[in-house]
């Protein structure tokens, strides 16, 4: 019936308003994403783009071991960074939610977010200063006599990349977990203890399962963007610490092989999406299994 499908004036206004940012996102996000997929099936020879459809780029990615290696390393680094970041962040979110007075919570969140908003490049570079041959850690440890030679395994390799990224994404992990922890009804915890559970088992049986949506959010919001970072591996990774994003950047800006770069971007995006979906799916299954 017509009256059931017709929109109220308020809905019409709502659609019109949302249409503006939607059109913008469509134009500057959907269209470019489509273009990059299209582009990945073309080829480029220096400055001329050949628009005949070909899967050559994807075959090259499949055939040359370097791309597979970089992709694998990228996913591994992102995975480790995500795990480290989320595991380290959880207690902090828990602390702010459960042990900080309500009136001080905003201040704590503010404290957590400040480092995140300060110049990213300089922050990454400073990790180099901390971890470097003459860096803070090495000179400190030498001074204390803990070591006699500067440690070298903490810079220009994957470890350094992981530490730096874990630092950069810290607030991204804390905030979603905090938001979910805040929503947990505190009387549930009292009920659990009233029913005989200890504080720790209450955490395991009540708090942790209820906070899983926040953990999932934190994982996704850290895992997905880390794949796209080329600054940290470039500055911190040395020769053995380069990641897929560096390769994409190189193909686009130095080798002038945009189609191959586009194909790499598409492949990287597909991998990240697939892993994220599997993760979300497994998590849902796990949570459902519990309840």
């Amino acid at each position: 019936m017509a009256r059931r499908t017709s929109l109220s004036p308020d809905q019409t206004r709502s659609i019109t308003l949302l249409g503006v940012p939607f059109a913008y996102a469509l134009l500057l996000l959907a269209v470019p994403l489509g273009a990059i997929i299209l582009f990945s099936f073309w080829t480029q020879d220096f400055m001329t783009v050949d628009t005949t459809f070909t899967t050559a780029n994807y075959r090259e990615i499949w055939d040359s071991p370097i791309y597979g290696l970089l992709l694998q390393r990228s996913l591994m680094v992102s995975g480790i960074v995500t795990a480290v970041t989320v595991v380290l962040a959880y207690p902090v979110a828990y602390f702010i939610s459960f042990h900080v007075k309500p009136s001080r919570k905003s201040l704590w969140l503010f404290l957590i977010t400040i480092p995140f908003w300060t110049s990213y490049l300089i922050r990454v570079f400073l990790w180099k200063v901390i971890l470097g041959y003459n860096g803070v850690i090495n000179s400190g440890l030498l001074e204390l006599g803990v070591i006699t030679e500067p440690l070298t395994f903490i810079l220009y390799n994957v470890n350094a990349v992981i530490i730096t990224l874990a630092h950069a994404f810290a607030p991204f992990a804390i905030l979603p977990i905090f938001v979910v922890l805040e929503k947990i009804d505190r009387s549930l915890l009292e009920a659990s203890q009233d029913l005989g559970e200890s504080k720790f088992s209450t955490f395991l049986r009540i708090t942790l399962p209820l906070s899983m949506p926040g953990v999932v959010g934190a994982v996704l919001i850290v895992f997905i963007p880390t794949i796209g970072d080329y600054v940290t591996p470039e500055l911190m990774g040395g020769a053995g610490g380069k990641l897929i994003a560096n390769m994409i950047q190189t193909q686009f800006l130095q080798l002038n092989n945009a189609p191959l770069g586009a194909a790499l971007a598409v492949v990287a995006m597909l991998c990240v999406t697939a892993i994220s979906l599997i993760f979300v799916f497994l998590n849902r299954k796990y949570l459902r299994g519990r309840s």
Partner: peptide, 11 residues
């Protein structure tokens, strides 16, 4: 949540 490099290269 989109990797920034994807936004960058597609644009």
């Amino acid at each position: 949540v989109l990797p920034e490099i994807i936004v960058a290269v597609s644009l």
